[in-house]
Nucleic acid binder design. Sequence first.
DNA 1: GCCTTTTATTTTTTT
DNA 2: AATAAAAGGC
Length: 710
Amino acid sequence: MSTLLDTLNPEQRAAVTLPHESALILAGAGSGKTRVLTTRIAWLIQTGQVSPHGILAVTFTNKAAKEMLTRISAMLPPSTSLRAGANPRGMWVGTFHGLANRLLRTHWREAGLPQSFQILDSADQLSAIKRLMKALNVDTEKYEPKKLQWFINGNKEAGRRARDADAYDDYSMRLAELYEAYDAQCQREGVADFPELLLRSYELLYRNEPLRQHYQDRFKHILIDEFQDTNTLQYRWLKLFAGPHTVLFAVGDDDQSIYAFRGANTANMAEFEREFAHGNVIKLEQNYRSHGNILTAANTLISQNAHRLGKNLWTAEGEGEPIRVFEAYSDQDEASFVVDEAKALNREGVSFSDMALLYRSNAQSRVLEHALFSAGVAYRVYGGLRFFERQEIKHALAYLRLMTHPEDDGAFLRVVNFPARGIGARTLEQLADTAARSGSSLWQAACTGSGKVAGFAKLIEDIKQATTGLTLAETIDHAIEASGLADYYRADKDGADRLENLNELVNAATLFSEESEDNTLDAFLAHAALEAGEHQAGAGQDALQLMTVHAAKGLEFHTVFITGLEESLFPHEQSAHEENGLEEERRLMYVAITRARRRLYLTHAQSRMLHGQVRYGIPSRFLAELPEQVLLHLNRRAEPSYRSVSEPAPRATPANDTGYRVGQSVAHAKFGTGIIIDFEGRGADARVQVKFRDAGTKWLALAYAKLSPA
DNA sequence: GCCTTTTATTTTTTT
DNA sequence: AATAAAAGGC
């Protein structure tokens, strides 16, 4: 027992062994947050205060859930061991969405869903919305499908159905109407989008007293990780599980709240303190991860946010190395710098898997990947194009969905004519009419019809017949062949990759059957929707880790490269239009910095390929917000020293008599500093377009504007 | 009705 | 740059 607690500091120990009352743990980055959470679970079980059956632990990502299970089972004696994925002792550990799904699968009847209801991911949801708008003849110029999706999800995440939605003018009232129609369509087709999983299970427990009583009695302890990321609905969801005797243990860090864009509400922390913790708040401020300079940088940066609960991390470690700042000539130059440094570090003994290459948005990984590939450095990309979101996989999944749940019109439309079987727009219109008139699904209309459409229905039926009794993997394999998907991609000259991915899907199914206790097709389809990014080939190898800053939360590395530190990229220009957008970007930067244990690189490029053209950027304001004494500027030079061999020397700027060139930093008496992004005319007529750090982008006549090189 | 070419649009972050 | 929607030819 004591061994569990031996290595904890006093605050951590206090948190782990808190008596039987709810508490809020404010845990800074690297303060042992996950450790405290998992140790508390192990401690509760070992001291016999609760059986695993009575524990509910909620996380946000699948990665975190897996990590938690692994750590808990390592702390408990083998007899109590918990297989990853399965939970023989009945502990509930998972993401909000995963647990909501579990609840709805168990109580589908009470929740008013078909047993085989399907889950729509964001892309599925958007196409369902487009389909709806088309059927209702909505002007998609005036009402953009994306806007409607945003409206629906925003309302659901706030716990509001269409009738309660914020509607104050004609426009939003129309949106609310469409929201209602969308929900009706989903209900008709027996599908649920992500926020629906939560809202539906919330309503289930809210309305069904015996059921609520059952779960409130069952779960004695509820533990929540990353509490700052909960949205209004998730918080209310949690509260339904909490009976009068339930102990809630919430761990969070307001400085790491980076999901406001999907409804996360940091006010939940204050609310929780008032409603449950009653001043029972423990701060974990000792950081065990990073050296001093890295922490100083992080603290200084985050202190510039106005909205904070307040907290300052400290470390017992020394200052460590300075933070290295590198200004690259171009994005390619930046990439080769990173590759060179990573290789050098690797030679010094740091494994590639202990280095992370972070960026603000997924699109930035391309150039980096290219440089790594050319240099022969193994790397692994997290997120980005997710496996289960590839079109060939989506097609295959659509066939599988039709087999188990034929009312899924979205799946039907996706593959009814893919591969092509002579069923065109005209035919489908007629089919949709028939279906609408009889209030049935496209599938039912197809079955009663004749010709090619009926042939398609028969094809699905045949596949279903032929696969009864087969294993999950065999079923999927057969469906891929019989549907004609495999042949289609075999005939396609660019189809080799896609064929391979389809093969990989069969492998994923095999793996899933081995690991999961429920190996039905429905369970696999839910898994595909909920864990779209978890399946990635190439694990286990010593590879450099590439991911967005968002994806890096909760992880740590010996060395971290933060790339693309330019205005409008990081902070992202979109954030300027959002309320408190800049503060969220700063928290994001804070998260990025605090991922590093020993060494941190911050890089930015003068020019970058963006939207298909070269753009000139100015250094991110976040660089200026860091204390100069912890920084080491690796270069301050005009010429690139790092350039890949394949890349041609930078184009010489056309000779002109002005002494200025595109890409150059300049200072203006009134507008401050900026960078020249375009040039026009010569001599006395010469004008330059300058992107200023604070004053926006302006055209200036060189003869009048008093510019000076900066 | 199918398939290729052109045109437009888009790009934040995730369950 | 890359992809989706639209248009045009077969």
